[in-house]
Computed example of a mutant assay.
Amino acid sequence: MRYQFVYYPKCTTCQNAKKWLNDNGITYEERNIKDENPSAVELEEWQKKSHLPLKKFFNTSGLLYKSMQLKDKLPKMCDTEMFAILATNGMLVKRPILITGNRVLVGFKEDEWKQIK
């Protein structure tokens, strides 16, 4: 199975996830989220496969999220608007993201990731 690992290299959680993938012999294709931001279409597809609420795709601890005051704005937005905002800058997107054939994992929770092996 082919995996896509979407991450930000300076993110400690992403570094831990990458180490976990390597330690477990899982091969993957890397994608730096800052260099290659996901499109709204990709994000919508990933969100469906993740079975998570769209708000879980926002990097709520990020500086950009805070400076844009998205905590206050998101409740008033429709999904289309949220996907459009996420697609403007990879730093708004929660990471790492691991994409498998039919599953998408957002954030690194080792117990969840173990289930993909």
Rank of each mutant, 00 (worst) to 15 (best):
F57V: 00
T12V: 15
V106Q: 04
T100I: 12
I97H: 00
K10G: 08
E30T: 14
L64V: 07
A84I: 11
R31W: 02
T60I: 12
N102I: 13
P9T: 03
S67A: 11
N16C: 07
N102Q: 13
A17V: 02
R2P: 13
N89E: 11
A84P: 06
Q15L: 14
R2K: 13
F83I: 12
T100K: 07
M91G: 06
L74S: 03
K76H: 14
Q115M: 11
C14M: 07
E45C: 02
V6F: 08
M91D: 05
L64T: 14
M77A: 09
Q115K: 14
N22G: 05
V104Y: 01
I116E: 11
T12S: 14
P53Y: 05
A87N: 09
N89D: 15
N89M: 10
H51G: 03
I26Q: 03
P53F: 04
M82A: 10
L64W: 04
A40Y: 00
L54T: 05
L70T: 10
V93T: 15
Y28K: 01
D111V: 14
I99D: 00
E45Y: 08
S67P: 03
F108P: 00
L52M: 13
K34Y: 11
N32E: 05
A84N: 13
Y65P: 01
N32R: 02
K49L: 03
M68R: 14
K19I: 15
Y8L: 13
G107K: 00
D35T: 03
M82K: 14
P9D: 00
T60R: 12
M91C: 09
K10P: 07
N37V: 15
D23R: 04
M1A: 12
E44T: 04
T12E: 09
Q15N: 09
E42Q: 04
A40I: 01
Q69P: 02
